[in-house]
Design a protein around this nucleic acid. Structure first.
Lengths: 327, 327
DNA sequence: AATGAGACTGTGAGCGCTCACAGCCACGCA
DNA sequence: TGCGTGGCTGTGAGCGCTCACAGTCTCATT
């Protein structure tokens, strides 16, 4: 920096000002500095800057789910890429933190609360995840992806309108003439689990029967397959099923095929997420699209606001029905 | 730090030593410092430390592929998670960098070369990616995932033994009595493209015919489907096909089904990667497993060695045949 | 008893930046 | 002429750490 100052014929202070917005820097000085920087190949030392500003210009992307379950979900990729890019636009880097096991959670928690990062994007499906409390208690700026059950009031978050998405799908199934519509829900301690079930109930009203509802304990293909198998026992007369995630729907498809039911002729299948599997399976899934790119952008926006001292906010984004072959 | 020093009754220097391995620190001092740290809730300021050590304790994970093509690959998740965790064990954080477009590549290149990170893990399928040269020229410690075509000599890398994997698969197909074995290769400017084709040729020797080989321009499901369709025209008599990636194999399966060929009865299909799609499709894919967790560990090990001043090395890891239903 | 080696400790400088402050100048206004 | 105002600039302190160095103290060796 002293070199640049010497070459440009100004002081360190002026360089610093030029680098940080250029307020109160004359045009000729600005130009001389620009040239000097180019000539010397100078690049700021972010560590030195961070040392005084107490800002790291980085945020953590915390994946807090046991065993990389979430990692199996192809949607997650999209979210991660979206956040990285949205942050890059602000010259902020994303550091990835995985908090699967209890030890990992502790280490991530410590990492985030010790000022290594300016804030955190939290992806965690289950309610009661202690990391939410830990981060919130320590005053770390956090925005969650999906409604943070148990922290709706005090944590910023952005979520897709799960409930409405479910309504759209079930409505669609009914409009196509399906009469006995079952559902496979996600775990009921996750927002996707309760909300999508809620939407199902909204549409069906008093037509809902317990035997038509099966809850999977995780959002995996295997869990979906098991749930569908169970459903075929409790409700062999079903002619449609709304599955709360595409991955589970892929499993349901396999179970149906094994049972000799044709999709969509005998049983219509509706998924949720519009993840990559939706077009990989046969038949391709009719599903509900979450606006993932927008979700990531909003998450980043909220987080930057939070870091900027603004109060936590929540954003709910609309979902959209995608018609393919399974319904 | 001064607080800790005061409480523990020692000097800053001793604290620093205690924090960095504890050499030349007496047991009582060590203990006093431990207590003082706990009492004061002290955490080191990584920025201050980095400022003097010139080490950031972080590495970049560079995803350099246009349009998030690689991102579509479920394998990528596993690699990313593996690297994050392997690094965490060394108290090093992973920062994610996406260099899809040309501008992004420039920005990532600048970011990495300006000392924000101590090194980089590079995931890029195509040869001739300028980022390889840029990073190598600037002397940044880099280890690539997969053979870095054009930089085999000067860049560290770890790769699966693609060629041998392909051999295993083709050999297996032949052992099962298949006579007319075709192949769908990946792009020939990628290591997976050339090596897996090489393995195919190794086994088939002079039985290879041009009409049995089709090259896809990308590793996607759609490209696999298109390639299979083409193959059914040039070689309608085929009774097996080795597809250079699971994602493409999923596409090939769809094309075969559309053409009325049964898998595996009429046509046996062999994939490559053992990625998540392998068990999602019907029938489940017989494929070649890449030891992804081990690949990530090795990448991290090589990178740390490199940062430590050691010369670049290459590691080739064995692959393994996974038998399922498609062959 | 003198000496040297080795373990341990404190001190000061400095990593590269920002920020508050004070100083300078030119200008407009009374 | 005097004074205030605002744009621009340089200066010094300090962010929180590490590292080299110089010192102290202990103990075995001569």
């Amino acid at each position: 920096m002293d070199d640049v100052a010497a070459v440009a014929g100004v002081s360190r202070g002026t360089i610093s000002r030029a680098l940080n917005g250029g307020r109160n820097v004359s045009a000729p000085a600005m130009e001389a500095i620009r040239k000097a920087i180019q000539q010397t190949g100078y690049v700021v030392n972010q560590h030195a800057r961070s040392l005084v500003t107490q800002r790291s210009q980085s945020v953590a992307f915390i994946l807090s789910e046991p065993q990389g379950l979430l990692f199996e979900d192809p949607n997650f990729n999209v979210l991660l890429a979206g956040c990285t890019q949205a942050l890059a636009a602000h010259d902020i880097t994303l550091v990835l933190a995985i908090a699967g096991s209890k030890e990992e959670r502790k280490r991530v928690s410590r990492f985030v609360t010790s000022g290594h990062v300016d804030g955190a994007l939290l992806v965690s499906a289950h309610s009661g995840n202690p990391i939410m409390d830990e981060l919130h208690d320590r005053g770390v700026p956090v925005v969650a992806c999906g409604v943070p059950l148990g922290h709706e009031r005090d944590l910023a978050y952005v979520a897709a309108d799960d409930r409405d998405g479910a309504r759209q799908m079930v409505q669609y199934l009914r409009d196509r003439g399906r009469r006995t519509i079952a559902t496979i829900t996600g775990p009921l301690d996750t927002p996707g689990g309760v909300q999508r079930l809620g939407g199902y109930q909204d549409v069906l009203g008093d037509q809902v029967e317990d035997r038509l509802i099966v809850t999977a304990d995780r959002y995996t293909r295997a869990a979906g397959e098991a749930a569908m198998t169970r459903l075929l026992e409790t409700a062999p007369d079903l002619d449609a099923v709304f599955v709360a995630s595409d991955l589970m729907a892929a499993g349901a498809l396999a179970a149906l095929r094994r049972a000799g039911r044709r999709v969509p002729e005998d049983v219509a299948v509706g998924g949720f997420d519009d993840s990559a599997v939706a077009t990989t399976v046969e038949p391709a899934l009719t599903t509900i699209r979450q606006p993932l790119p927008r979700i990531s952008r909003e998450m980043v926006r909220l987080l930057l606001d939070l870091i900027d001292g603004q109060p936590p906010a929540a954003v709910i984004l609309p979902t959209e029905l995608v018609r393919r072959d399974s319904a």
